[in-house]
C-alpha cells in the first residue's frame, strides 16, 4: 500500500503545481488545496503507516500492549487540516473580493507595474 500512496502523493503534487500554473484564480486555489492534501498524505506516510491500530489505549489497560499507529503525525495532520479550512475560507473570500473589485479572473491582468527609473 505504501507504494500506492507514494504514487498518490506524486499525483497530488503534480496536479497541485499544474493548477497553480494556470491563470485562473479559482484554479490557483484548487491547486493549493491539492498540494495541502498531498502534504498531509506525505506526512502520514513518512511517519509509518500501521493498519487498523489507532493510537488509543484499551479501556481496561493503562498502556499500550500491542502495535499502534504513530500519534505524532496524526496530531500534526489534524491541525493542518483545520488550518487549511481557515486558509481556504480566507483565500476564497479574498479572490471574490479581487474579482468584484477588478472584474477579472485573470491573474496576469493584475500585473500592474508601477516601477520605473
Amino acid at each position: 500500500m505504501e507504494l500506492l500512496l507514494v504514487i498518490l502523493v506524486g499525483a497530488f503534487y503534480s496536479a497541485g503545481i499544474y493548477m497553480m500554473f494556470r491563470r485562473s484564480m479559482v484554479k490557483l486555489l484548487l491547486g493549493l488545496l491539492l498540494l495541502g492534501n498531498g502534504a498531509n498524505i506525505l506526512i502520514f506516510l513518512i511517519g509509518g503507516i500501521t493498519k487498523g491500530k489507532a493510537p488509543i489505549i484499551k479501556p481496561q489497560n493503562t498502556e499500550f500492549l500491542e502495535v499502534y499507529a504513530d500519534p505524532v503525525p496524526q496530531a500534526l495532520i489534524l491541525t493542518a487540516i483545520v488550518i487549511s479550512f481557515a486558509l481556504t475560507a480566507f483565500a476564497i473570500v479574498l479572490l471574490k473580493r479581487v474579482y468584484t473589485t477588478t472584474g477579472s479572473d485573470d491573474l496576469d491582468s493584475l500585473n500592474i507595474q508601477d516601477l520605473d527609473i
Binding site: F44, I49, T50, K51, A69, Q74, L78
Partner: peptide
C-alpha cells in the same frame, strides 16, 4: 477512507 484504513479515526 485512507485515514480510516490506517488507524487514524480522529483524522
Amino acid at each position: 477512507l485512507i485515514f480510516v484504513f490506517y488507524g487514524a479515526p480522529d483524522l
